[in-house]
Design a protein around this nucleic acid. Structure first.
Lengths: 192, 192
DNA sequence: TAAATAACCTAGGAGGGCTAGGCAAACGTA
DNA sequence: TACGTTTGCCTAGCCCTCCTAGGTTATTTA
């Protein structure tokens, strides 16, 4: 029987493509096997199970996204860095919706710590170099940025902004302006 | 045969409970049938299919959440309203993780327009009464708040903040301060 | 070139989604 | 109160996905 030459990496890549086409939650072992013209049982020599496959796709997505962000961020600071980061993030989510969904998969601690997720938080923190914030404000700001970017992308993709005519591109630009302004004037604790 | 007295509403409620216990994505028609001591085929007289069941749970969650927010918002304005809204939202997500996940289900346009989702956007807009923002800034601010709240809850639940010791409760409070400050000093377009 | 390894296979069980058609409980009505 | 109608839940059965056990054959290596 002609051997296709499967291995965990090829399966992961193909799984990621499949995710972008049909949605991450609809990625299935049998679907992937079908794509390679192979019986589904054959995949189990390369991936432990369905969960394992999905985790691998998630890790791939995290790596890719981190690479993009790193490139976008290189040599930038302040608002430039903020916008570069945010746009890299959002563009990736739009180009690769399935992979982006995969990147949101809950990983167990061990896996997460050894993933590109740590690069992500380091890079988010790097943005803030330009706006001198002392701890714990920096951590709070990191969390705010992460939340807002992720939330925006999620809501935009889910069509949550569709009932208002305002162009989401314009909103995005203004939100970046607003976040920049906020980081430059981060309020002191307990303002009132 | 003893009749259990199933109907779409009871199924939806039980489905919501099930979602909170095992996760929204693990809600299954057969699991729900098991919970009622009934064969799974029996449920199909009350709900069209698995997708329909999930949509009903989503709509229920949206209603409940909207009710909570409405109550929390009553009689408040400015930062009080902002905090009340945000906390109602976050508390619901923590108490009912499955329902909250359900509320994020992508609904088709028709369904969404007739759901409590419209109350949600109206209420978000209501918060902003206290901070006079003219359009399109108001829409942008609505989107920012929605994104940030949703993103924060999602990341917190996914454990995305765990690798930093900072208490997420404190961060949350400071983010509300920050958003309040931002809304009171919304930057003019194209600041630089 | 024979042995070892690895790639892919068949067979089959468990469980979820869903349809068709049956029977009996509950209800409406005479 | 008996009689037909409705409808709630059933059995049977099909398809799909996940996954395991164990077999066969291509490829590598000694």
């Amino acid at each position: 029987m002609a051997r296709v030459g499967l291995n965990a990496e090829r399966l992961t890549r193909a799984g990621a493509e499949l995710a972008d086409e049909v949605g991450f939650d609809k990625v299935t072992v049998s679907g992937l096997a079908r794509r390679f013209g192979v019986k589904d049982a054959s995949l189990y020599s390369h991936v432990k199970n369905s969960q394992d496959l999905k985790t691998r796709i998630a890790l791939l997505a995290l790596e890719e996204l981190a690479d993009r962000v790193a490139t976008a961020l290189a040599g930038r600071a302040g608002k430039d860095a903020l916008a570069a980061f945010a746009n890299a993030y959002r563009d990736y989510a739009r180009e690769h919706p399935g992979r982006y969904a995969a990147a949101q998969l809950e990983l167990d601690y061990e896996t997460a710590v050894n993933s590109a997720a740590v690069r992500h938080s380091r890079m988010t923190r790097a943005i803030l170099r330009g706006y001198d914030l002392a701890e714990p404000d920096e951590t709070d700001a990191v969390r705010l940025l992460g939340s807002t970017f992720h939330g925006y992308v999620a809501l935009e993709r889910a069509g949550g902004f569709q009932h208002t005519p305002r162009d989401t591109e314009d909103t995005w630009a203004r939100i970046l302006d607003a976040l920049d302004a906020l980081l430059r004037n981060w309020p002191a604790p307990r303002p009132r």
